Simulated assay, not measured.
Amino acid sequence: MQQTQQTDSVEKVRKWLHEAGFPVEIRMTEATIFTVEDASMAVGVPPSEILKSILLLADERPVLALMSGPNKVDLKKVKRHLNARKVRMCDPDFVFAYSGFRIGGVPPVGYPEQPFALLDEELFQFPVVWAAAGSDHAFFPISPEELRRITGGEARDIKK
């Protein structure tokens, strides 16, 4: 059952990317990409080039924080950027219920309605970052500029 769910999740991301005009090959790995360290080893790049997609709730509205691997999101900075009263991290059950993606494979795209995205400014130091593609065994490369374009997001200082 979980394998079918993972396959469906990856296909959802693949379809979304295709429809957004971003032809990319989603790569699969036997190794997990559940953590930044796992992903770094599986992909073969430094942890800073791994993209973390973190789902937040800002005044009960889903928002994505797209972070360079080792960086942590500063909820106070996100709150200021969004002029929100309250910002909090989503728990794994909410993430799955809202998006259909499980923690460890949360992608930057592929949602029924794309959440607003804030991109960690440090991502723009790299020509390519590596994003999860709907499961903890699937990923794809993307430039930070292309990531900003397809998510409709904004680059901001949101790092702790």
Score class of each variant (00 low, 15 high):
residue 63 V to S: 03
residue 85 R to T: 06
residue 87 V to P: 04
residue 79 K to G: 01
residue 52 K to E: 10
residue 39 A to D: 05
residue 16 W to H: 13
residue 40 S to G: 09
residue 108 P to A: 14
residue 99 S to V: 03
residue 106 V to A: 00
residue 40 S to F: 09
residue 57 L to N: 04
residue 34 F to W: 10
residue 75 L to R: 05
residue 70 P to R: 11
residue 72 K to Y: 01
residue 97 A to D: 14
residue 39 A to F: 03
residue 18 H to T: 13
residue 76 K to C: 00
residue 91 D to A: 00
residue 54 I to D: 02
residue 96 F to W: 06
residue 33 I to F: 05
residue 71 N to F: 02
residue 42 A to K: 06
residue 31 A to W: 00
residue 88 R to I: 10
residue 41 M to Q: 15
residue 35 T to A: 08
residue 54 I to G: 04
residue 22 F to E: 14
residue 11 E to S: 12
residue 78 V to A: 08
residue 84 A to T: 01
residue 50 I to W: 10
residue 33 I to H: 00
residue 46 P to I: 13
residue 102 R to I: 11
residue 90 C to Y: 00
residue 25 E to H: 14
residue 62 P to W: 02
residue 74 D to R: 06
residue 82 L to Q: 01
residue 71 N to C: 10
residue 119 L to K: 08
residue 31 A to L: 11
residue 14 R to W: 05
residue 104 G to C: 10
residue 53 S to K: 04
residue 116 F to S: 07
residue 78 V to S: 11
residue 29 T to A: 14
residue 53 S to R: 02
residue 92 P to K: 07
residue 34 F to T: 15
residue 71 N to K: 09
residue 100 G to C: 11
residue 19 E to K: 09
residue 37 E to G: 07
residue 45 V to S: 11
residue 63 V to C: 03
residue 29 T to L: 03
residue 48 S to M: 13
residue 68 S to M: 06
residue 18 H to R: 13
residue 24 V to P: 03
residue 87 V to E: 06
residue 84 A to D: 01
residue 41 M to T: 14
residue 59 D to S: 04
residue 88 R to A: 06
residue 112 P to V: 02
residue 30 E to D: 15
residue 48 S to K: 15
residue 92 P to Q: 12
residue 11 E to V: 02
residue 48 S to E: 15
residue 72 K to Q: 14
residue 119 L to R: 06
residue 14 R to M: 08
residue 78 V to I: 12
residue 103 I to V: 15
residue 68 S to C: 12
residue 78 V to G: 11
residue 68 S to Q: 11
residue 58 A to G: 04
residue 60 E to C: 07
residue 77 K to L: 15
residue 118 L to R: 09
residue 24 V to D: 05
residue 52 K to Q: 11
residue 118 L to F: 10
residue 58 A to T: 02
residue 52 K to T: 12
residue 118 L to Y: 06
residue 98 Y to W: 09
residue 50 I to C: 09
residue 72 K to I: 06
residue 114 Q to M: 11
residue 32 T to P: 04
residue 112 P to N: 11
residue 35 T to L: 07
residue 44 G to Q: 12
residue 102 R to Y: 10
residue 17 L to I: 09
residue 104 G to L: 08
residue 27 R to T: 07
residue 117 A to I: 05
residue 40 S to Y: 09
residue 105 G to A: 03
residue 92 P to S: 13
residue 71 N to A: 12
residue 63 V to H: 02
residue 51 L to G: 08
residue 20 A to G: 00
residue 10 V to F: 07
residue 101 F to Q: 02
residue 22 F to Y: 15
residue 69 G to F: 06
residue 22 F to S: 08
residue 38 D to I: 10
residue 58 A to V: 03
residue 60 E to F: 10
residue 74 D to F: 07
